[in-house]
């Protein structure tokens, strides 16, 4: 049996906290009711480190570090809120809104959307950058679900849940930069995918209206990713 990981003590926002050595700053902070915003992180999935919302300041380190993948260390001094961090977080949300076509008023996930909530939480009242208005397709070929590329923020939660939990490897990312987008299998319509098991996990973990169940709008479109922790516990996967 492996020895239990050692315990570290550190300081987050001036508060002394203890954490196991294998815990991330994000885990330690949330255990202690210190909120750090995230979009690509989801309890029960591997970390992507992609949304950059959870960046925190570490004393003695010039670069900002993502709390989701940075492990705690003895004597660490973490700052999760500062004018600089808040400014960058607001800009991340602004960049996301300007990137694709996030029109909340006509979105199936209006009021059920993590991106929308994040904007509210961070006080993003308007977007200063030019909207890009890309022309993006909507894949409605699956009999139960829809993929709307206009709403996708490329958090890759769907890719990870499909790979790590369902084991189907249906979702993937294709293309580079602003042209990067999700694909099913080798870029075929979702409905024709041989690997998709129609389990719907991708839909449940999607933070926005990019993946949704057909004919469910408004309150019905509420997503529930809590199954992940249950599944992981049953499978005894430690994350």
């Amino acid at each position: 049996m492996n020895p239990a990981p050692s315990v570290k003590t550190l300081m987050i926002d001036g508060k002394d906290v203890s954490a196991r050595a294998d815990q991330s700053i994000l885990d330690a902070a949330r255990e202690n009711a210190i909120p750090i915003p995230t979009l690509c992180h989801l309890d029960g999935l591997s970390e992507a480190g992609a949304c950059r919302l959870c960046l925190v300041e570490l004393k003695g380190t010039p670069r900002l570090q993502p709390a989701c993948v940075t492990l705690v260390e003895e004597g660490m001094e973490v700052t999760t809120q500062s004018p600089r961090l808040e400014k960058y977080r607001r800009m991340v949300v602004e960049l996301l809104f300007a990137e694709r076509n996030h029109v909340c008023s006509v979105c199936v996930s209006n009021n059920m959307c993590e991106l929308q909530d994040m904007a509210k939480q961070l006080g993003v009242t308007h977007v200063r950058f030019p909207y890009r208005y890309p022309r993006l397709p909507v894949d409605t070929t699956h009999e139960r679900f829809t993929m709307d590329h206009n709403r996708c923020i490329l958090c890759t939660r769907c890719v990870r849940v499909c790979t790590e939990i369902e084991g189907a490897h249906t979702w993937g990312v294709f293309g580079r930069g602003v042209d990067a987008h999700l694909i099913t299998d080798l870029d075929i319509p979702w409905g024709t995918s041989d690997t998709c098991t129609s389990c719907g996990k991708c839909v449940q973990v999607c933070p926005t209206g990019a993946l949704f169940e057909k004919s469910k709008v408004g309150m019905q479109s509420q997503k529930n990713p809590d199954f992940l922790n249950y599944l992981n516990e049953m499978r005894e996967i430690e994350r």
Partner: peptide, 8 residues
């Protein structure tokens, strides 16, 4: 295209 600051 992985992280937002660089992509967008």
């Amino acid at each position: 295209g992985k992280c937002i600051p660089c992509r967008s």
